[in-house]
Structures are given as structure tokens and as C-alpha cells.
Nucleic acid binder design. Structure first.
Lengths: 206, 206
DNA sequence: AGATTGAACGGTTTGTTGATTATTCAGAAA
DNA sequence: TTTCTGAATAATCAACAAACCGTTCAATCT
């Protein structure tokens, strides 16, 4: 069924164009169908519904992002702290720029996470896998030694939840958000307890 | 102007009754005025508007909560970790129960934080003062030694943001939230770095 | 047969109108 | 004069109708 996959891809491409020009809500199935030179009804042989097309677009997009993050998680020549830092900053910057420069994409993200809460969970699960890779690698190098890595990854995500949801940012600029994330990472790495206070931590440059 | 303050208090009491019985939206200024045996117009000599009455109620309520938390922050016979734990759990439980058992109060909270974002900031600032007290006390006892306590308190709040906003809970039960908060606190206290791994941490009992 | 259409269905959104209500203020009461 | 009233105002809300659009499916085409 390579032909069917081609058509699915064509539909996704057409929808992507429409969604990013006019927004998800203002794009009709009839328009997407016309762009693909087919009838509206025929779309439903390839996707169960409009939201599923949006989900396909979002899945493709986030998968690319995940691939990038997977590389950051195991970059050689950087210690675990730096890799965790790079990973979480990448996620923050991506979200911030989507919000700022791409309101259409942000609209789609809102719709999907409202209508398909499972999708947001999938994103968290995938990112968590990468965090676990990072922790595994860190253990191999003797940097961190968390007992339960699955649980630890979940807690790192919980502690950085603020940086995933623009609704919680209340007009904070990116530099301020980065300064906060930097602080949270420092706390997560070193903790409040003094023990053997580790060497200095670099400050964010903004 | 003791008389004026009495009337202000009477208005708040009348509004509190109405709001908690019928909700904020379904309560009219005319009704509150009638309850206070005055005309609607006269209310405006005491409060600038309906929202300000709601804010007065919320301020009074949260101030009581703050007082309670202030006690938790300096309870003798508990170490800093336990006090931080008690403080953050108290906040979480309060929010959870407002949401579960008191939809009227939750409605008011939503309206206020939408129309008066400054109020949410005030709450955070006040809670932060308490966190700083806790850190000061911890330093005195040689438990934690954060360099910049104002900043550290801010970061503790950032890391526990998830537990303040029911919108982020997506159907999580209180026990699951408590388990997560427990994990985040552990991470905040001990950090990911091994250094001198501290003694075991208790598990939540639910 | 399998693939495709497009009109029909039903749910949602949009636009409109009328009522409700927060807020104001000219004047009455004290 | 100062305090208060309540009708007037303007903004918001609720209800209803019309239009729109996602989705389905009987009919048509290949």
C-alpha cells in the first residue's frame, strides 16, 4: 500500500499548508480535499478525521525534535549536568518560539492537547525515555547514581513542568525563564543540602 | 473611620454568604446591597467593584492560610526537610480540596486569577517570604546553607509549580500527586549528585 | 469488486436580539 | 455639606435562528 501512504502524505502536506496559513479552525476539510483534488468524503478513507490529520502533523514535528534531543542527551565531551541543561533548555526554547513566532502552531497545540490529552502524555513519555538514556549514560560515567531512573526522570519532568506550559509564564521574557530554569537545574543537581558543595555553576549569559 | 470599616466588613460577610451559596457569577450587586439594607449604588462608596469584594474575601482567606503555614515553617522538633515537606504538602492539599469539595471557591479563584493576575503574584510573594523564613531557620540550625535565599525560594516555587495549578493535574488523584511532590522534594533536598548520599527518605503512606 | 463522489445529517459556531446586571451620577434625604 | 438613593447607562449574558462544516453513506464510477 505504498500508494495509500503517498496520498496520506499528500493530505498531510496540504493540511500543513492550510493550517499554517489560516489556522486549524479556519481550514475546512473541503478545502484540504480540493487541494488534493479529491472529494471531502474521500479524505476519510485515509484519516479518521480532521484532528487526526493535525495529530499526524504534530507527531512528525515532535519526532524530529525528539531526535535532536536524543543527540543532546548523549553528546560526548559534555558532563551530565551540561547535557541535562542543553536538553531542558532546548525544550523551553522550542516552546517559547512556537508561542512567539508561530501562533498557528500554538493554536494547533492547544486544540490537540484539549481534544487528545493522550498526545501530551505521549510527548512526556517520549521525552522521559530520553531523560532515562541521559541518566543511564551518566551512571556509566559515574556522574549521577539515581536508584530508580524511571522515577527520577518523572520527577525531573514534574519539577520543570512550569517551563512547558506558556499559560504559567504570565508575560515572563525568555531570558527570565532561562534564568529560572538554570536555577531549578542547579537545585536539582546539587540539592539544598550542603554535603560536599560542588564547584561553581555557570550563570546564564542573558 | 471605624464605622466605615464595619460596613466594609458587613458587605464582605454578605457577599461571602451569597458567593458560597450561589457562586460569584450568579450573585448580583443588588442582592448584596439588599442583604446590607442599602442601595446598589452605595456599595461603590465602600468597594470599587464586585471583583474587589471577591478579592477582599480571598485575601482574608489566604491570609489565614499563610498564618498556618508560617507556623509550619518554624515548628521546633522537625528538621528543615520535614518543615519544607509539611509546607508544600499543606499548599497542595488546600488547593486539591478547594477544587474537589468547594467548586464555588474554585470558581472565585479562577475569576480572580484571570481578572487580577497581580493577586496570584501576591500569593506567591507571601508564600516565598515564608520559604525564606524556613531557609533562614535552616541555616541557623546548620541544615541547609543556600547562598541566595530569595533566589532559592523562588526556585523551590518554580520546581513545585505543577502542584499549584489543577489544570496541570489531568485527573491525577491526591495520592499520586502526593507521591510526586514527595519525589520532587527529595530531589530538591538531595539533588542528583551522589556526594555523601544521605540516609533513607520516608515514603508517602498512601 | 473496490474506489470515489457529493448530497444529506447533525453538531457546532455565528450572528442577532432582548434581558440582565455592574456601574454611574443627578438629585433627594439627613 | 455629606450620605445615600435609584433610575439611567453601557456592558455582558442568554436564547434563539441561521449558516457552516465535519462526517457519513447511498449511489456512481472505474
Amino acid at each position: 500500500m505504498a500508494e495509500k501512504d503517498n496520498i496520506r502524505e499528500q493530505i498531510v502536506q496540504a493540511a500543513k499548508k492550510r493550517f499554517s496559513h489560516f489556522g486549524y479552525a479556519k481550514t475546512t476539510m473541503a478545502e484540504v480535499a480540493t487541494d488534493c483534488a479529491m472529494s471531502p468524503g474521500n479524505l476519510y478513507r485515509f484519516y479518521p478525521g480532521k484532528l487526526d490529520i493535525a495529530e499526524a502533523i504534530a507527531t512528525e514535528d515532535y519526532s524530529k525534535h525528539l531526535e535532536h534531543m536524543r543527540k543532546l542527551a548523549v553528546t560526548p565531551g559534555k558532563d551530565a549536568r551540561q547535557r541535562l541543561h542543553d536538553l531542558l533548555f532546548e525544550e523551553l526554547r522550542r516552546t517559547y518560539h512556537k508561542l512567539e513566532k508561530d501562533p498557528r502552531a500554538y493554536e494547533m497545540a492547544l486544540v490537540i492537547s484539549r481534544e487528545r490529552p493522550e498526545f501530551a502524555n505521549w510527548m512526556l513519555r517520549e521525552e522521559r525515555k530520553i531523560l532515562i538514556e541521559l541518566l543511564d549514560e551518566a551512571e556509566r560515567r559515574g556522574e549521577f547514581t539515581p536508584e530508580d531512573k524511571e522515577f527520577t526522570a518523572e520527577m525531573v519532568q514534574a519539577a520543570t513542568m512550569k517551563f512547558r506550559y506558556p499559560q504559567l509564564w504570565s508575560k515572563l521574557t525568555l531570558p527570565k525563564l532561562e534564568r529560572e530554569l538554570e536555577g531549578v537545574i542547579q537545585l536539582l543537581i546539587n540539592g539544598l543540602c550542603p554535603k560536599a558543595r560542588a564547584g561553581h555553576q555557570r550563570e546564564v549569559a542573558a
